[in-house]
């Protein structure tokens, strides 16, 4: 085959259409979308175990007109999230680079990894510093938080950080399916689904139900994206 066989004859519309096709094919070939979903799903399930064996610590209590306000956080669990998330993004970056190299391509995963690690560090710092008291200075709002404050607090968690970083990955990959998944995942994180299960569990297991849902959503989506990629490759 020679270049004549693929000549566009200088037709600008066809040349431009070809560049778009080539660009799309490269981006599809670079995708390893199932990997971050699988790894972050495993990290989320790991958090359930860590939460079960660790205790929250209450410090800095002060009495206000509205009632007593304390800083409550679980240093073991939050440290787990920080270390596990950084390790997860290192694994994801390595996986993306390895797969892209094997396919004969470079990778554009770096901004996603930077966003993910930055989100993990930011969430850890905010929670460790007890930033809720600065973000919502009015004690009445803290003791009886409105829906918008609850949504904000749920966003400023490790699970929220995972969702935000996935939006960055969807943009990098120009991946509409991943964008829709990331928005759906964020909806699950921000507007918790309550099936009634876990409501009668002990205080130690509180929040485990939400982590199970988040982890399952990530793992199922990872399996779905892996299957879709396999089907596409076999065509």
């Amino acid at each position: 085959m020679t270049s004549d066989a693929v000549s566009a004859g200088g037709d600008p519309r066809r040349l431009l259409a070809d560049t778009r096709t080539f660009a799309r094919r490269v981006r599809v070939a670079q995708r390893v979308t199932w990997l971050p979903l699988l790894v972050l799903g495993v990290v989320t399930f790991g958090a359930i175990l860590v939460q079960a064996v660790s205790r929250p610590v209450t410090t800095g209590c002060r009495t206000t007109d509205a009632g007593e306000i304390c800083k409550v956080w679980n240093p073991v669990l939050e440290s787990y999230w920080l270390v596990a998330m950084v390790a997860a993004y290192v694994v994801i970056a390595g996986g993306y680079l390895r797969v892209a190299r094997a396919r004969g391509l470079g990778s554009r995963v770096r901004p996603y990894v930077i966003a993910g690690v930055a989100a993990a560090v930011l969430m850890f710092t905010l929670i460790a510093a007890g930033a809720g008291r600065w973000i919502v200075p009015d004690p009445h709002d803290l003791l009886n938080p409105s829906t918008s404050i609850l949504v904000l607090f749920r966003l400023l968690t490790a699970s929220g950080g995972i969702g935000l970083a996935l939006l960055v990955l969807a943009w990098l990959e120009r991946n509409v399916a991943l964008l829709l998944f990331a928005l759906g995942y964020l909806a699950v994180v921000l507007v918790p689904i309550n099936f009634g299960w876990g409501s009668h569990w002990s205080g130690k297991s509180e929040g485990a139900a939400q982590l199970i849902v988040n982890g399952l959503v990530l793992l199922l989506a990872g399996a779905g994206f892996a299957l879709a990629q396999r089907l596409r490759a076999s065509r």
């Binding site: 000549s7 070809d18 396919r103 470079g106």
Partner: peptide
Amino acid sequence: HQRVRLGILTIAHEARRVEFGF
């Protein structure tokens, strides 16, 4: 302004770096 060379540039741009075989 030639399909193949424009294709090479487009693929190399999107991929950051690309292998000969691809």
